[in-house]
Design a protein around this nucleic acid. Sequence first.
DNA 1: TCAAAAGTGTTATGGTTACACCCATGA
DNA 2: TCATGGGTGTAACCATAACACTTTTGA
Lengths: 229, 229
Amino acid sequence: MSYTYEFPRPALTVDCVVFGLDDRDLKVLFIRRGIPPFADRWALPGGFVRMDESLEEAARRELLEETGVEQVFLEQLYTFGDVKRDPRDRVVTVAYYALINLSEHNIHAATDAKDAAWFPVADPPKLAFDHDRILATALARLKGKVRYEPIGFELLPQKFTLSQLQKLYETILEQPLDKRNFRKKILGMQLLVELDELQSDVPHRAARLYQFDEHKYAQLKQKGFNFEL
Amino acid sequence: MSYTYEFPRPALTVDCVVFGLDDRDLKVLFIRRGIPPFADRWALPGGFVRMDESLEEAARRELLEETGVEQVFLEQLYTFGDVKRDPRDRVVTVAYYALINLSEHNIHAATDAKDAAWFPVADPPKLAFDHDRILATALARLKGKVRYEPIGFELLPQKFTLSQLQKLYETILEQPLDKRNFRKKILGMQLLVELDELQSDVPHRAARLYQFDEHKYAQLKQKGFNFEL
DNA sequence: TCAAAAGTGTTATGGTTACACCCATGA
DNA sequence: TCATGGGTGTAACCATAACACTTTTGA
């Protein structure tokens, strides 16, 4: 089977930058390539866009196929289309970034025996294609957006402590925050529900758990409220 | 001549949302389509990406070919790839937005006899494809970005008065601003060069002219300075 | 009892907001 | 002389930043 067109067309792919957070640092997920070009190099999960699916559907499908990740925050990042970004053929890729919480998602290696692994964003391996540039773009976006949209919560479990939340911001923004000021500010927004529940299994005083109130955020946002760290 | 591939490929285009500002309001540029689908409808300037040009190059080329506009602020906006956004074929489009100052650019109708015209963004004509959605996305981006990047100056002549600048922000943000506070804030940033020159040909007291200091902005930005209206 | 993190208020500072009048110019 | 926009300062208010000790818990 083959497909013929009057004018040449670039190939179109999607690639996903998947961020996760553990108690150490911010991580990003890569897949080991099985085939040339860049065989054995690490690369972003991604693949060709099919004719019967939208770009976001393609990104979600690839994410599921290659990493088993489903139902996550996913947002279009940028489209990379330099002529020589793929050495063989003209390939334009629409990049997405995803935020997942590592404690509630299990990443399995891909179906086709390539393996998947998390790397600290600060210290990624050598990557295929222009994927280092895509990663840098995604990081910049995350760093910018986390301050004025409450997307950080996507990286935490549903129930979290204020210290976890603060650490998240400190990690992403790469700057320390004052504990009291942080709590005052975040609680002042009234977007967190204080649960009747404490941390368990910690070797020190257990912290209170909170939940992000998406419904309330949607309401406030409509009234002109702006989240701002 | 024809081109054959093993798997089907979407067609790839670029479209440009071109913003301009006159003394009335914010305007956007459309081209009258000559051919189906949507013959005679207004549409964004744009066209197919060639194999030997990057996406931004394609956008600049189309802009030049269809409107005569050159050397303007141009930034990638978003990529639209819904399956049925073009009724004939699968077409994915990478949208860009451009900011130009109407007083220093002459928009000519396109080479191929379609005509081009400016419309108020608040009252656009009925548009081809999903171009209304693209316009809405561009407006949202402009409105958001103008507050924390000094891109508004791209819409003004090189030399402008503080009142023009204020009106620009009031128009884009759709809210009135206090004159004294606005001046205090914008002058406080030290990004404007006060010229030894006044407005001419106005039927009232002539206002002082200013110029944006791009060089200084680049310096300050590097040192961690953030423009913020 | 010790280590480790949780939790909690106050003060100083700086930026934002609100607000009204005189000035210069050309018609 | 009138109409039109140009240009200017101050005070109240609010948000941010800096800062240290007590509490709880499990080991």
